[in-house]
Every structure is written in C-alpha cells, then in structure tokens.
C-alpha cells in the first residue's frame, strides 16, 4: 500500500477517534456522575446497549489502527534495513489484528451477557 494512503487512514482514524472518544466521555459525565458511570453494573449495561457497543468497537478499531501505525512510523525512523522494516510492518499489522480481535471478543461477549 502506498504511504499516502496509509497516512490518509492515519489522519482519518485520528479525527474519528477524537470525535468518538469525545462522545464517549460526554456520555460518561452527562448521564450520571463519573464515579457512578464506572460501577460494574453501569459498565456492563453500556456494553448491552447495542449502539454504544458499536461505538466502543469503532473506537477500538480507530485507536488500534492509528496507534499501531504510529508505532510503525516511530520504529521505521529508529532503525533502517530491509528485513527490519518488513518485520516492523508485518509485526505492527499482526499486533493490531490481535488487539482488535481480543477487544472485539470482550465487547461481543459482554454485550451477549457472557460475563
């Protein structure tokens, strides 16, 4: 994939994450007190509310893509070499996929009541 496409995704995910995390935080502090919103029952209730669960999934994807691409960029600037760069590219991609899969599993299981 061309670097400009990757960077468009990078900037897009950053903007998307800022918006959705803002909604997430506003939801925490406007619906009830922030302390109460972190109670076990209230957190589980959030996951069971499907639109909110979808938003959490989106935040997970956006932050994982943005974060791991950021890490890839940092590592590419730190050291150079063909095999090293290949390892960094595929390593970051695999780590991103694993994190998204694990996070999605958590969101899915909680929303289905498998806690």
């Amino acid at each position: 994939m061309r670097e400009s496409i990757i960077m468009k995704i990078h900037y897009g995910t950053a903007l998307g994450a800022v918006v959705l995390v803002a909604v997430h935080i506003l939801y925490r502090i406007t619906m009830m007190s922030f302390g109460d919103s972190l109670e076990y029952e209230n957190v589980v209730a959030n996951y069971k509310f499907i639109p909110y669960a979808i938003m959490l999934e989106l935040i997970l994807v956006l932050l994982s893509v943005h974060g791991f691409n950021g890490l890839r960029v940092i590592l590419l600037e730190l050291k150079q070499g063909k095999s090293y760069e290949k390892a960094v590219n595929y390593g970051c991609l695999a780590s991103m996929a694993i994190l998204i899969a694990y996070g999605s599993r958590t969101i899915l299981m909680t929303s289905m009541g498998m806690t």
């Binding site: 061309r2 670097e3 960077m7 960029v73 590419l76 600037e77 150079q80 760069e85």
Partner: peptide
C-alpha cells in the same frame, strides 16, 4: 516521494 522514508517522515 510517496515512500515509507519519503515525505511523510
């Protein structure tokens, strides 16, 4: 210039 060590760095 649209390379992993190009303009975006």
């Amino acid at each position: 210039i649209d390379d992993s060590h190009g303009i975006w760095r």
